[in-house]
Design a protein around this nucleic acid. Structure first.
Lengths: 203, 203
DNA sequence: TCCCGTAACTTAACACTGTAAAGCAATGGG
DNA sequence: CCCATTGCTTTACAGTGTTAAGTTACGGGA
């Protein structure tokens, strides 16, 4: 039964080709410029063929994002390995998050900044289990450890984690979406946000 | 020469009618569902008539937003009147900002969350002098006063103001765009963000 | 009073978009 | 050898923003 398997393989290959083509266009041109017809042209198939592999544009884009968001998880996990104190782990994680966003602005945009009607098809997207959710879990764990070690004031972990998220999401999204705003020097601003947030959390 | 003036008046009226129609659709259905044809249908003119009054969709939307963002300025100015100490003024201003965003989510979205290709036509939008810019100036003034009074640690005003902006923009945009995320209770979270930010800034 | 230019608006069209339905062609199993 | 399934394409629909050309009404000058 090698034939069915070869078929299966080829089908999987095309699926991956579609994702690759979509990612290439998406990364360089962004969401608005990504169209099904452009993807189709790049893989040299008809536009509707894509619909045999993905339910709709949202589903395709979701795949592209999931792929990238493993990297975000990696960045935070790396912080967990290299940081020597819980607070240092947290700090490195926050910096890693912001740098990830700035390195992959289009991904960050559709997944975190304006996901509505973009990667969430009709409101039935499963955040549970997604790579984005995993990244948030890692942040929460880091927060819990900081509380346990006494590095930051004790309190509700979820509230604290979401407060931190607000801060780092705020600066990341502002820097991505408001390129023309006269921000102060980038590194300085990022450090200010991270430092202010952490200073606001220590006992 | 009353005729030319009447004409002028009528033209201005139609212009305002277009803005009104656009706002109504926009407020209730958001950017994606706002189309020139829908606006046209509501005012009972042909779609292309709108182009005699506005350069393009961005220009029309920009008008709708400018209109709304005077309210944001008002909210911050109100904080300036009712707050008794510079820090209280700042705090009320931050809360006012967040509440404004949550009260006008669609406006906040196109103006602050994802302005690219929405209200910024082809990158030649004048942030200088816009209502949004005025609001940010008010925030900066408030920060400067807090530094002068010693309520918050002294430092670069722009950096501090932008750091604060990151925090309040972060929570506002998250709450608007991620309705399905399991956030902790709204008021609790907002207070946590504002408190943490301010605690991070006091000497 | 008549004519004509101009201003206001409409109609038609272009180049796109995402997506559904129907058609076609090849291929492997009975 | 036939036939059904699989994989893909063609066609089409209902939208989008926007431009260019066409139409109509009206006020000022001759």
């Amino acid at each position: 039964m090698g034939i069915a398997e070869r078929r299966e393989r080829e089908k999987e290959n095309l699926r991956q080709e579609i994702i690759d083509a979509a990612r290439e266009i998406f990364v360089s041109e962004g969401y608005d410029k990504l169209s099904m017809r452009k993807v189709a042209e790049r893989i040299e198939y008809s536009p509707t063929t894509i619909y045999l592999y993905f339910e709709d544009k949202s589903a395709l884009l979701r795949e592209v994002c999931e792929e990238a968001f493993y990297k975000l998880g990696d960045a935070i996990r790396k912080a967990k390995k290299t940081g020597r104190t819980p607070l240092e782990v947290l700090r490195k994680g926050l910096i890693g998050y912001i740098e990830f966003g700035l390195a992959h602005p289009h991904h960050y945009e559709v997944a975190f900044i304006s996901p509505k009607d973009k990667i969430f098809g009709e409101g039935d997207y499963e955040f549970e289990g997604s790579a984005g959710q995993q990244a948030f879990s890692l942040l929460s764990e880091s927060v819990a450890e900081c509380m346990a070690s006494g590095d930051i004031r004790k309190g509700d972990v979820a509230t604290t984690a979401q407060t931190i998220w607000a801060g780092i999401h705020g600066i990341t999204s502002l820097l991505i979406m408001h390129e023309d705003f006269p921000f102060v020097e980038r590194k300085r601003l990022i450090n200010s946000v991270v430092d202010t947030t952490i200073r606001g959390l220590v006992p």
